[in-house]
Amino acid sequence: MLQVKNISFSVPEKQILHDISFSMDQGKFIGIIGPNGSGKSTMLKIIYRYLKQSSGQVTLYENDMEQMTRKKIAQEMAVVSQETPVLFDFTVKDLVMMGRTPYKQWLAQDSKEDFAIVEESMKLADVLYLKDRTLGQLSGGEKKRVMLARALAQQANILILDEPTNHLDIEHQLQLMDLVKELPITIIAALHDLNLAASYCDELLLMDEGNLHRKGTPEQVLTEETIKQVFHVQAGISKNPFTQKLHLFFYAENVGRSEDK
């Protein structure tokens, strides 16, 4: 479905990503993990065309994404970023309605179908009760869920999430992850929380210093040796008694970066 081929990305005096390649199958939940500064968000921004790679190619259904229009990309990919880049204080229902924009002609009116999709998206993201509030009246967690509702209203085949659980309490973290896990689409998420990644992702991409360090299932990627090497902490691995998924616990004493790092 999606292929990343030999992607590198540089800014003046620094290379951020180094010759990264991988592919993603339709319907999978893919997690991108790694320490701060490893290139997770940069990789996502290249995938959804916010940034242009220095070299390499991203293809969607074997089509070069550089040749696709922004409207077509928005029909295929919905994004919930770390930031909330809204310049005006729209109401929640108006903001979620913006998710229907890729399907409209210029100045076209909202249809009954649009209103139905927007209401269902707000219900799924648990923000329908906020529909008449403005963005400035919301907490950080509420804003995150509103942005998810807007992304759901796009009805795209791929949902990209950059640190989706930031600003959310434990209950809403699990609700959001349960919701996106059940969606019949491809999910690509950059995650800090390794236990959430282990519980919800079908496959993980482990980034380290701009390189793709390892790719595979959570069991293949989240080993004690790999966690010590990349995250510089001791790790113990057990099973979550509720889900039977991997559960990690950490211990930082006597584990640090070598002097040359």
Rank of each mutant, 00 (worst) to 15 (best):
A197W: 00
N211E: 10
L194I: 04
C201W: 00
E209L: 10
N211A: 08
S199I: 03
I227W: 02
E224K: 15
T223N: 10
C201A: 14
E203S: 05
G216H: 09
N211T: 08
K228S: 12
N195E: 01
K228E: 14
L204N: 06
Y200M: 07
Q229G: 05
N211K: 12
V230L: 11
L222R: 03
Y200L: 07
C201Y: 01
L196S: 03
E203K: 08
H232G: 03
M207A: 06
M207K: 02
M207Q: 05
G210V: 02
G210A: 14
N195T: 02
L205K: 00
H213C: 13
T223Q: 13
E203P: 00
E209Y: 05
L196I: 12
E203H: 12
V233F: 11
V233P: 05
L222N: 02
L204D: 01
A197D: 04
T223A: 08
E225G: 07
Q220V: 03
N195S: 05
K228A: 12
N211L: 02
D193W: 06
T223S: 13
N195G: 05
K228V: 02
A198S: 13
G210D: 07
N195W: 04
E225V: 03
E225L: 03
Y200V: 04
L212A: 07
D202F: 13
H232F: 15
F231W: 14
T223E: 12
L196K: 04
T217M: 08
L204V: 06
L205A: 05
L196R: 04
M207Y: 02
L206P: 01
Q229A: 15
E224Q: 15
E203W: 07
F231R: 03
S199M: 11
T217R: 09
T217I: 07
N211W: 02
I227P: 00
H232K: 14
C201E: 00
H213A: 15
L206H: 01
L206M: 14
L194N: 00
F231S: 03
G216F: 11
N211D: 04
V233M: 12
T223C: 10
V230Y: 08
M207P: 00
L212P: 04
L194S: 00
K215C: 11
Q220N: 12
R214K: 15
P218A: 12
L204K: 06
A198I: 03
E225C: 00
V230K: 09
A198G: 09
L222P: 00
A198P: 04
A197S: 09
L205Y: 06
D208H: 15
D202Q: 09
T217E: 07
C201Q: 01
D193G: 12
L206T: 01
E209M: 10
T223R: 11
V230E: 08
G210M: 08
S199K: 14
T223V: 06
E219M: 09
G210E: 07
L196V: 05
D208W: 11
C201H: 02
E224V: 13
P218V: 01
T226K: 06
L212R: 04
L194M: 04
N195L: 08
L222I: 09
Q220F: 07
